[in-house]
Amino acid sequence: MSDQCVFCEIVAGKVPHAKVFEDDMTYAFMDINPASDGHLLVVPKRHSKDLLEIPADDLTAVTLTAQRIAKTAIKELGADGVNLLNCCGADAWQTVFHFHLHVVPRYVDKAKDRLVLPWQPGVSGYADTITALADQLSPALD
């Protein structure tokens, strides 16, 4: 637990929040700035700054909890789909530096869904650039 982390404070029950779920390793609560109806966050109980720092067992637990909640959002809230979103680093829009997954229920009814894409899917990139980046990453993963 980090002394100055609002999500650690939420897990400890020191900050008001709307709890959704808790197990031994994870904690889920409603996002106070929701992109859609039912938007919530799943965090590991143990503090990890971001995706690069979180231990594999905590990442697995958070992901499985997010999947469980996503299924429930579709069934109970009538969501038409779900986005899982993680932001890693300030330049990737991370604002709270405790690893978290956003579970964002998606709806055809835009009165329930305010999330819009920051890029345009279906617009092709440059094949040479894509190949060069794959060639750079692949050997580093072996």
Rank of each mutant, 00 (worst) to 15 (best):
A134C: 01
K19A: 03
P34I: 08
P105W: 04
T72E: 12
A56M: 15
P118Y: 10
G125V: 07
L51P: 11
L115K: 09
V103F: 05
H98Y: 03
C88E: 10
A92T: 01
G122I: 02
D128N: 04
T60D: 14
A18V: 15
D37Q: 15
E76H: 05
G81P: 02
G78L: 08
H17K: 10
A92E: 02
V104C: 02
D50Q: 05
L59K: 02
L133F: 07
V96K: 06
S36Q: 09
P118K: 09
P55Q: 08
I32N: 09
R106E: 00
S124E: 13
A90R: 15
T95E: 15
F21I: 12
D80V: 06
L84E: 04
A134M: 08
S36H: 11
N83G: 00
H47L: 13
M25K: 13
W93E: 09
K75V: 12
W93P: 08
I130Y: 13
A28L: 11
A35M: 06
T63W: 12
L59S: 05
I69D: 05
L59I: 06
V62A: 14
L117E: 12
N86A: 08
Y107T: 04
Q94Y: 04
E53V: 09
F99C: 10
Q120W: 08
S48I: 00
A111P: 03
I69F: 09
F29E: 09
T129L: 15
I32H: 04
T95D: 15
V20L: 02
G81V: 01
L41E: 06
K112W: 04
D109I: 07
A61T: 02
M25V: 13
I32V: 14
L64E: 14
D23W: 06
V42D: 07
D91L: 14
A90T: 08
D50T: 05
L59C: 12
A35Q: 15
H98Q: 03
H100T: 05
M30W: 11
W119G: 00
T63I: 13
D50R: 04
P55T: 06
P55A: 09
A66W: 10
Q120T: 03
D91H: 14
D80Y: 02
A132S: 00
A111Q: 10
Y126T: 12
F97R: 04
A111I: 06
A73P: 09
T63D: 15
A66P: 02
I69S: 07
D24M: 12
T26W: 02
G38Y: 01
G78D: 08
R46P: 08
M30V: 10
A18Y: 06
W93M: 12
L101C: 07
D128F: 11
L41A: 07
D50E: 06
M30D: 06
I74M: 14
I54S: 01
R106C: 09
Q67R: 15
K75S: 13
A61Q: 12
E53G: 11
L101V: 06
A28I: 02
A92W: 07
A134V: 05
V20P: 03
I69V: 11
R114A: 09
I130N: 09
N83C: 01
P44V: 01
E53C: 12
E76D: 04
N83H: 04
L117G: 03
L64Y: 01
K71N: 15
T60E: 14
A61I: 00
E76C: 10
K75P: 15
Q120D: 13
